[in-house]
Nucleic acid binder design. Structure first.
Length: 491
RNA sequence: GGCGCCAUCGUCUAGAGGUCAGGACGACGGGUUUUCAGCUCGUAGACCGGAGUUCGAUUCUCCGUGGCGCUGCCA
């Protein structure tokens, strides 16, 4: 049987890294098994506080950017559509009627007010909250009366009062729950729309889903869904719950943990390939191999549901940052420049449509800073001095290297050597200039190097001096050396 | 409160009834050098507690403790 798995996001917000990881696991498993990866939009919650259709493009783009485009989904179609729940309402309503007819569900006429009050009272008494099943035991007369009065109603699942439900979870093993602990879940809201529990079961069955791979927070509702599969006489899928991703405070990763939305990471300059690799390693391990960096193909090759961990994982921003540096370092200068361009343009360091020469200059500058780059957005700070001459030197550099007579001598000597150049210097030429300056002034190289670095870049740290001199070129060096004279402090 | 799940370095994790409990990030120290980064070498750092099973448990069982999740006409 062909494996069919799905990613079922709700348009309630920009995709979260936890959701993205679930999508990744589903996609990888599908590829591994030669199966089908489906995406379905679960848009049954129309509460304006939560329903945010504007995030749907981000849902789509996040998958595209990671290279996990679904085989069947709302954008590309498929044989089991529609892949949007709001377009499948009749299916759920019909299913709910079937359940009522078979005695597995009932209409509930309780008002939201009564339910709220009931919950409050239960809380106050320290009782477990849950529906008191009043409408489950309505007399035929009452039921008929409510119907004739056209009272709004929901449809609730009539959970068996005795026995227990046991299921096998690929990750967590056997899980057993007493049926009497399960609430009579609302399946169909009074507006005729389904809740998650009904819709997910109907759709997963109709779409032929074989494995449900989802977050561990869904685990408690699995017995209700199993009951539904049984009530419909449908075969249940294989259950796979994956551990949650937590923030530093060990709480389910949420808004207050800083960046948690997939796009925040992408926007700030984490590479999609980094996110793919990193997220896969949160809660899944290749086993004995002592490696962290895996290509997509290598992950697919090694992936197995059994390799999924049971413990929740804390999202480690430091490790992500490290890994992104690793991925940046294997990029060619051209690729890296392509990726950095938007950040340089945004910072106003280069024009929006750079000419050949400007682009080449940027590429040379970026190449020199690549080792230092961990997040693409940092490129503007790292390479800024290449594009804009520093206005003032770093205070520390000025104090240490631009005080007294010596820097003036270094500047003058170096400047005359640069001026004598017929062309922009090579790296070797630059080194010669430094060596001659040192010899002429009878100095060691380090003070010359450090002084010139501050003069040319305004900073005390950065790429190798000879390399950056070569990239800067003759004219920029001359004007910067001139300006630096004014930076020198009298003792 | 109830129910469920989980428990190895600070973090992500590997691991087997007997291991010097392995790797990675981070931290710290050395080397390379022209600063930072990178690269490289190295150091510190963990089996939640208590019973039980066993010749032997960090590994198996139970209890405790702690953490998390769920407990909505949200998903």
């Amino acid at each position: 049987m062909t494996v069919r798995v799905r990613y079922a996001p709700s348009p309630t917000g920009s995709p979260h890294v936890g959701n993205i990881r679930t999508a990744l696991f589903n996609w990888i498993f599908a590829r591994k098994m030669g199966g089908v990866f489906i995406a379905r939009l679960e848009d049954t919650d129309r509460n304006p506080d939560r329903y945010k259709p504007e995030v749907i493009p981000e849902l789509e783009e996040s998958m595209v950017s990671l290279g996990i485009v679904p085989d069947e989904w709302w954008k590309g179609g498929g044989d089991y559509g529609p892949y949007v729940q709001s377009e499948r309402l009749a299916l759920y309503q019909e299913a709910a009627e079937d359940l009522i007819a078979s005695g597995n569900a009932y209409r509930c006429y309780c008002t939201p007010e009564r339910l709220t009050k009931m919950r409050e009272e239960q809380q106050a008494l320290g009782l477990p909250p849950g529906y008191d099943r009043r409408c489950r035991y309505l007399s035929e007369a009452d039921r008929a009366r409510y119907e004739s009065e056209e009272l709004p109603s929901t449809v609730r699942l009539a959970v068996p009062l005795e026995g227990r439900t046991t299921y096998q979870d690929v990750v967590y093993g056997q899980i057993t729950v007493e049926n009497r602990m399960i609430d009579d879940q609302v399946l169909l809201k009074s507006n005729g729309w389904p809740t998650y529990h009904l819709a997910v079961v109907v759709d997963d069955h109709l779409m032929g889903i074989t494995h449900v791979i989802r977050g561990e927070d869904w685990q408690p509702s699995t017995p209700k869904q199993i009951y539904l599969y049984n009530a419909f006489g449908w075969e249940q899928p294989v259950w796979v719950h994956v551990p949650l991703i937590l923030g530093k405070d060990r709480k389910k990763l949420g808004k207050r943990h800083g960046a948690t939305q997939f796009y925040e990471f992408i926007r700030s300059g984490y590479l999609p390939e980094t996110m793919f690799n990193f997220l896969c390693l949160l809660g899944w391990s290749a086993g004995e191999e002592n490696r962290e960096i895996f290509s997509v193909a290598e992950i697919i090759e090694r992936f197995s549901l059994e390799g999924i961990s049971r413990n929740p994982a804390i999202f480690d921003y430091d490790k992500l940052r490290w890994m992104n540096g690793e991925y940046i370092r294997v990029l060619s200068p051209e690729q890296l420049t392509d990726r950095c361009m938007p950040y340089l343009i945004e910072a106003g360091l280069i024009s929006a449509t750079p000419a050949q020469e400007e682009r080449a200059y940027a590429e040379a500058a970026i190449a020199l800073c690549a080792d230092r780059l961990k997040i693409l957005s940092e490129i503007a700070d790292l390479t800024g001095f290449f594009f804009v001459a520093p206005e003032v030197p770093e205070e520390k550099g000025q104090r240490k290297w631009l005080t007294g007579e010596r820097p003036l001598q270094i500047i003058a000597t170096a400047k005359s050597l640069v001026a004598a150049l017929t062309d922009d210097p090579s790296v070797e030429d630059a080194e010669q200039i430094v060596n001659r300056t040192a010899e002429t002034l009878n100095l060691e190289r380090p003070p010359v190097i450090h002084t010139l670095r501050v003069c040319l870049t305004g900073r005390t740290v950065g790429p190798g001096l000879f390399e950056l001199m070569s990239v800067l070129g003759k004219e920029r060096m001359l004007s910067r050396l001139d300006r630096a004279v004014g930076w020198v402090l009298k003792e």
